[in-house]
Write a protein that binds this DNA or RNA. Structure first.
Lengths: 154, 154
DNA sequence: GAGATAATGTTTCCTTGTAAACAAAAACCA
DNA sequence: TGGTTTTTGTTTACAAGGAAACATTATCTC
């Protein structure tokens, strides 16, 4: 099993080099690096896009549900949603049935942005791991799903 | 292909649910959750441990090399190392050959801590994904390594 | 050798994300 | 009904991590 990027002044990482937590961190850093390399003038970050996308696909979704499904803490979600609202990409409505909560819907402007970004956002993944073919990437995804599911027994 | 944790008030995440960046984030969150669930009174965080471990295995390593190998930015590494030094776990030495740099070595106290934590830190991974058997986990790791390598052509 | 350039760490400021305290509105329960 | 508890979202204060400017030392070039 090869070990990640052993440059000239390589050091010995021992078991850490194949630790699953460490590998997950490295993989995510790589994804981020590529994201921002191809970022261009799309002024939307991965987290923001995932929220926008989820609202687009679930009109009127409650903010709280979004937190649970995207695994984002409430205090942070407040900021993300406010930022999207400030840019007129989503709108908030306090429903009469439960005046504690907030229902979120995407605006026309937001939908336009999603339509524009989504192809890039998801195609982006196809450029990921150019040296991995599609089959291998699907296997990796399947195994990540299994891993996540196995940790979600709570 | 199953989709992560569809609770009662599930929503439709569409393609996002199998996006590799999204899955990597979820997987890492799960690892962190478990880490801190089993954290106990071990007052060392994953990042700190990885630095300490790397120093232990590479006595006299240059701080800069550590940055490259662990993919941690210099400004952050400064803080991590200072924190370890403040706890007398590592010691810093400015070598005469190159007075810009810093050589790091682990102290006896640091080594004792590594010896104490390491078995838990790495065994910890064996409890990860209890519903995944060892073979499957090895496959996942192998594919993560391939993924990382394929993104490290720069 | 002297000045320009590069490498290494540190500092300062900013972004992302969380934890804990809080406010408001349900829901529960006697 | 009237209090207690829970749910939901916001605020505030903080931790993790990074970008950019800086200081210091080494290297490179003439």
């Amino acid at each position: 099993m090869d070990v990640p990027h052993s440059s000239s002044n390589a050091i010995n990482l021992g078991r850490l080099a194949t630790d699953i937590g460490f590998l997950l961190r490295l993989a995510q850093v790589k994804v981020y690096e590529r994201y921002f390399r191809e970022y261009g003038d799309r002024h939307i970050k991965p987290g923001e896009f995932s929220v926008l996308w989820a609202i687009a696909h679930n009109p009127g979704v409650r903010q709280n549900v979004l937190c649970q499904e995207l695994i984002i803490k409430r205090s942070h979600m407040t900021k993300l949603v406010r930022s999207l609202e400030d840019r007129a990409l989503v709108s908030r409505r306090v429903p009469d049935e439960d005046r504690r909560g907030v229902e979120l819907t995407i605006t026309d402007k937001g939908q336009t942005l999603v339509d524009e970004i989504a192809p890039w956002f998801f195609a982006f993944e196809d450029c990921l791991g150019e040296k991995m073919n599609a089959t291998e990437r699907e296997k990796l995804k399947a195994q990540l799903l299994k891993f996540i599911a196995s940790e979600t027994e709570d």
